[in-house]
Simulated assay, not measured.
Amino acid sequence: MYLRTPLQFLLGATSLTAAHPGLQPLRFAEDGTFQVSIFEDLHFGEAEDLEWGPQQDVNTTRVMNAILDGEQQQLVVLNGDLITGENTYRHNSSTYIDQIVAPLVQRGNYWASTYGNHDSDFNLSRHALFAREQHYANSLTANMVHTSDAGVTNYYLPVYSRDRQDRTPKLLIWFFDSRGGNQYQQQVNGTGVPIPNWVNPSVVEWFTSTKQNLSRHYQNASIPSLAFVHIPVSAMLAFQQASAGVSPTQEPGINDDNPLAPQGDAQGQGSVSGTTFTYGGQDVPFMQALLDTPGLMAVFSGHDHGDDWCMHWDSRLPGMNITGNGLDLCFGRHTGYGGYGSWMRGSRQVLVTEETLKQRSVQTWTRLEDGSESGRVVLNGTYGRDEYELVEDKYS
């Protein structure tokens, strides 16, 4: 097992700027805002040898361009399933990264990725995707946990004040690899070897140690933070299946993937060969670590293309043995024309300000490909009780 020393924990994020000398640290804008655009489930490379497959990628690029031109983001998060790995060939699978990031490169956007269950398959390697991303100066994607079964995209990024004299991060952004899919170039008796589809315990250990070291270093036990992971945790399923369920006015959003597929669930594996997994609480240590993180405001996931609601986890949900502490959990909107479903594509937006961080308040909404806005809410102490407008179930 290889885990970083305390000093490496603290220098991990800043080492990105050493690798790319022209890279500037993430900062709040001059008006005190920091906005993230999430591109979820892009699924490039699907049916690449058929006419309709490449056209899907053209359509997805059109959506990305519309979002980038319509919003004022400081960071783009590619939150898993960048590529439909089971449909690609070994010689060109990782080069889809070039097509995916072209709109970001053109505009000079910074981006950071998590990888999803479709980003690993017999002809597609997570490590090859990561290596491809490292060709680009504006890629902030990192790999801070080097155990063999951790996945790749486990890391954090600091966001600093607009005041350049202030060297203490005002916001931390955590990224986790929920893994899944099939092992690269491995087969047993002619079938693929599936990868577990939950955040590995070694990553939980890294997360816990890193939080403690950052807290000591900055003498702040609760730096505000956000987190991204592709496959949702099982608390979201428990909330969805509870008697009250997802309220269309208190948790506005589409709720068509019901039941949803969380970490550890066989449905969450995607198209895999051989033995899959049955849920047995594999994500409980990760969920507990999230709840034990002072300052963590919200966690954003994708994977279930037909869901884009948020929940306020402040109770013990049915069938669970851990109790929420007010953490908000959100789905993003399916951005890509690849992958299942024809719900109108879009991108969840996340906005914080240096002022509202003091109240642990996050604004979030979905920008749809037709330019309209959907499901704007404020994630704060009263979310889950406040009333909002219904979200229309539109298709494209």
Rank of each mutant, 00 (worst) to 15 (best):
Y2S: 13
L10G: 02
T14I: 12
S15K: 11
G22P: 06
L23N: 05
E40R: 10
E51M: 11
W52N: 14
Q55N: 15
D57N: 11
N59P: 12
L68H: 04
E71G: 05
E71I: 12
T88C: 01
R90V: 13
S94D: 11
A102Y: 01
L104E: 01
N109F: 09
W111H: 00
G116S: 07
H118R: 09
L124N: 05
E133D: 09
N143A: 10
M144Q: 11
M144P: 06
A150T: 00
N154V: 06
L157C: 12
L157A: 09
L157T: 07
D163Y: 07
P169V: 03
L171N: 07
I173K: 00
D177M: 05
G180M: 00
N182Y: 08
Q186V: 06
V188K: 13
P194K: 07
I195L: 08
I195Q: 00
N197Q: 08
N197E: 07
P201S: 08
K211E: 04
N213Q: 14
R216C: 09
H230L: 02
S243C: 12
S247M: 04
P252T: 08
P252M: 09
L260E: 02
A261D: 10
A266F: 13
Q267K: 15
F277P: 08
G280Q: 14
M297S: 07
F300K: 03
D304G: 03
D304H: 00
D307W: 05
W309S: 09
I322G: 06
N325H: 09
G332H: 02
G332W: 01
L351W: 06
T353M: 06
K358W: 09
S361Q: 13
V362P: 04
R367V: 13
E369S: 14
E373F: 05
G375Y: 03
N380H: 12
G381F: 08
Y388M: 05
Y388L: 07
V391S: 10
